[in-house]
Write a protein that binds this DNA or RNA. Sequence first.
DNA 1: ACACTATGAGTAA
DNA 2: TACTCCTAGTGTC
Length: 308
Amino acid sequence: MPEGHTVHRIANLFSSLLTGSLIRASSPQGRFEYGASIISGTTLNEVEARGKQLFLHFDADRILRVHLGIYGKWDVFTFDGQYARGGSPKTVSLPTLGSSTRGRTEEKSQSTAVPLFPPEPKGAVRLRLESPHVVADLRGPTACELQTPEQVLEVKSRLGPDPMVDKGVRAEREFLARLGSTRRPIGAVLMDQSVVSGIGNVFRAEILFRQKISPYQAADSLSREAASALWKDWTKLLAYGVKTGVMLTRLDLNQAQTKKALRSPRDRHYVYRRQGLPCRVCGSLISLEMMLARKLYFCSHCQAEVMT
DNA sequence: ACACTATGAGTAA
DNA sequence: TACTCCTAGTGTC
């Protein structure tokens, strides 16, 4: 699920659950053993999300950079289940033996004396972070590495604005400037993290549909108003995603339909993964083409290219 | 058992 | 443009 909203949610969750704690780190899978040993036993001071990048600041300027890539994932388990409700990402409560079985979400009841918390790592867990009541398992990341503050600055310097971090008109102006300085198609430019941080394949398709912009439109041919609306729409969608954990991008739903869409992925989008199906606005069939080796979904009728 | 897919991005050519 | 890396779920034989 990793587009920008996911990373901010993880950062928020870690901030409330793990910052200020002494962390035990390990690599059950074995591929990050050395790195884990460096941060294990130190305090997590700050968690920072920027676009799809996550930075965990430990003592002594040790910074863990994590990028989930296409299928990386964090699984978070809490001891008391306090965070199991309310849509926290993948949070599960696991009772210990002898406590009530109510609320049990994993593990069948056991008659052995094995504690159910912390849970056994399942599959290829690259990194496990633990405090006494919290376990966070990382699997399949594109990047999981320790960095110096200088290296972190270098990474950040290559990132475009993130509306959750860079508030106000300066960030928008930055975005407008970067759009105006490239003739590449807007569908490619929105995926470029040095132009704007956090947009991925789902948000790219959906934002362009919502704004009625052809993905093939040259970025520098967009009007200032259109570009500004694009930024504001991304800001809005991102904030909603961070709040709910769901990429719900439709504007045409009433309250009951929204509730349904929150549960069923197929109802959440205008164009993403809807190739060959009728456009929800005009009824013509949704197109699927490849752009930069990624699947690009759009409605060629609603999103007609404007010649300039 | 094997093939294919996915919300990403770096590198080589 | 193609290949590479990372994991797990789904679909097909």
